[in-house]
Simulated scan of single mutants.
Amino acid sequence: MAVLWILETSLDPARVGDLRRLAAEMSEVVRAEEPGCLRYDWHLNEEGNRCHILEGYADDAALLSHVEGFNRRWARAFFGLLKPERLVVYGDPGPEARAAIAALRPVYMPSL
């Protein structure tokens, strides 16, 4: 079953250039190397201080693969640039997937 999420973050508008570079690098690698990633879109508000990232995964295995790669490659740069404020997860990921993203204190919205 697919799992989708929206990660809402804030950032210093002076770092938008850094954000654009990081988003381009991450998007290129994720799209090329993660076939279970169904959606990976970054959105920036006009003021340059809020970024939302929409992600979708075919199943828990795809989500776990993404989190593992993220932690290995980009976690330090990502969290040095962006401050996560809210993660809303749509679907019903299993316990292992939930544990992998627990540090972000997600709000879960299971399917009806």
Rank of each mutant, 00 (worst) to 15 (best):
M1L: 12
A2W: 00
V3G: 06
V3N: 12
L4M: 00
I6Q: 12
I6P: 01
L7Y: 04
E8F: 04
E8L: 04
T9V: 03
A14S: 13
V16S: 10
R21D: 15
R21Y: 03
A24W: 05
M26Q: 07
S27L: 08
S27P: 00
E28D: 12
V30T: 15
R31M: 03
R31E: 05
A32P: 00
E34P: 10
G36F: 13
L38E: 14
L38S: 10
Y40M: 01
D41K: 12
W42G: 01
H43I: 03
L44D: 05
N45I: 04
E47N: 06
R50W: 01
C51H: 00
C51I: 05
H52K: 08
H52L: 15
H52F: 12
G56K: 04
G56T: 04
Y57E: 08
D59L: 05
D60C: 03
A61N: 00
A61I: 02
S65G: 07
H66D: 08
F70H: 09
F70R: 06
N71Q: 13
R72Y: 05
R72S: 03
R72W: 01
R72P: 01
R72A: 10
R73F: 12
A75T: 02
R76M: 06
F79P: 02
F79R: 13
L81C: 07
K83Q: 15
K83F: 01
L87V: 13
V89K: 14
V89R: 13
Y90Q: 05
D92C: 02
P95N: 09
E96C: 03
R98G: 02
R98P: 06
A99P: 04
A99I: 03
A100N: 09
I101N: 07
A103G: 04
A103L: 09
A103D: 00
P106W: 04
P106N: 03
V107D: 11
V107C: 06
Y108E: 09
Y108L: 15
P110V: 06
P110G: 06
S111I: 12
S111Q: 14
